[in-house]
Design a protein around this nucleic acid. Structure first.
Lengths: 154, 154
DNA sequence: CGATGATTTCAGTGCTGACCGAAAGGTGTC
DNA sequence: GACACCTTTCGGTCAGCACTGAAATCATCG
C-alpha cells in the first residue's frame, strides 16, 4: 500500500523545519513555514495550525508573532471573522536571504576595525589581513550579486 | 589619559566573539579566534589562552578542539615541549565562509523535493515555486561567484 | 451587554548547552 | 621511576529557551 501525498508532505514539512532549526528558527516556527507553503487553502487560522501541527496554542501564537515580525508570514483580519488568517508571504523570502548574506559580509567591518587598530605594525596585522581581504571581497561581491537577482516567476 | 592599544584590542576581540556567538560559536571559541588573529607572538599554548582570556582550562580545551576540528586553528606539538602551541589558520577562513554559502544554497534541494511532491497541482505549488526559484538561482550563482574568488594577498 | 469563540499572555517545566574546576591522563626532564 | 607541568576528561552548576496549558484578554454576534 502506497504512502499518501499528504503523509509525504508532512514528512517534507518536518525536514524543512529541521533545516531551519539548525539556523536558529524554533522547530514549531519552521513547521508553520513549511505547512503554510503547501497547505490548501493557503490561509489558516492559529487554531487550525495548532490542530494540524499538534502544537499548543501558546507556541503557535509566539511563533506566528515572530514570523509575522520577520515578514515571512502575513496576518489578515476580516470584518465579521474573529479568527485572523495567516498565510505565507513568498515575497519576503528574498529579504530573508538577503539578511543572511549581509550577515556574512558584515564581518568586514569587524576585520576592518581590527586592521585599523594594528596599523603601524604590518607584521602583526598579517593574519588579520588575509581574513580582511576575503571579507572585503565578499562585502563587495555579495551585494553586487544580489542586484543581478532575477524577478520572481510570474 | 588615552586608552592603550592592547585595551582597545581586547574590546575588539570581545566584539569579534559577540558576532560569532550570534552564529552559534561559543563565546570562548570566538574569543580564542579573535585573540589568535592579533596576538604577538602568533602562537599560544592552551594555558596562556586560559590566562589571557580568563577562561577555565576545560573551556579552552573544548573550544580549541572544536576550532582545530573545523580547521580555523592549527595545533603544533614540538619535541622537547610538553605544551602544544596553537595558532590561527588564516587559509581555512575561506572554507569556513564557503560552508556558510553552501548552507544557504542547500535549501534548494528542499524546495525542489517539495515541488516534486506537488507536481500535478501547479495551483497549489505556486507559493513554493517562488521560493524554489530564488534558491535555484542562489544554488547556481553562489558556487559560481565562489569560483571567481581572488587568491589571498601575498 | 452578555455569551461565544478566538488569540495572547504568563507561570511553570524540561531540556540543552556553555562553562567551571578538580581529577585523571600524557609528555616531558632529571 | 619520580617529578613537574600541561592537557583532556568529566561531573556538576547555571542560564536560556522551546514548549505547554490555563487564565486573561479581545473581538464579534445575538
Amino acid at each position: 500500500m502506497s504512502v499518501g501525498r499528504e503523509t509525504r508532505l508532512s514528512a517534507w514539512i518536518e525536514r524543512f523545519a529541521a533545516h531551519f532549526a539548525e539556523e536558529g528558527i524554533p522547530l514549531i516556527g519552521g513547521r508553520i513555514l513549511g505547512y503554510l507553503l503547501v497547505c490548501q487553502p493557503v490561509e489558516r487560522t492559529a487554531a487550525e495550525l495548532s490542530q494540524e501541527l499538534e502544537a499548543s496554542s501558546g507556541s503557535i501564537s509566539t511563533n506566528l508573532k515572530y514570523l509575522v515580525n520577520v515578514g515571512l508570514v502575513t496576518k489578515r483580519t476580516r470584518r465579521g471573522r474573529q479568527a485572523a488568517e495567516y498565510r505565507i508571504n513568498e515575497k519576503a523570502w528574498s529579504e530573508f536571504v538577503q539578511r543572511k548574506l549581509n550577515a556574512i559580509a558584515s564581518v568586514q567591518t569587524l576585520t576592518d576595525d581590527g586592521m585599523r587598530l594594528l596599523s603601524g605594525d604590518p607584521e602583526r596585522a598579517m593574519r588579520l589581513r588575509t581574513v580582511d581581504h576575503l571579507y572585503g571581497w565578499l562585502s563587495a561581491e555579495l551585494p553586487a550579486l544580489w542586484e543581478r537577482r532575477p524577478a520572481s516567476p510570474k
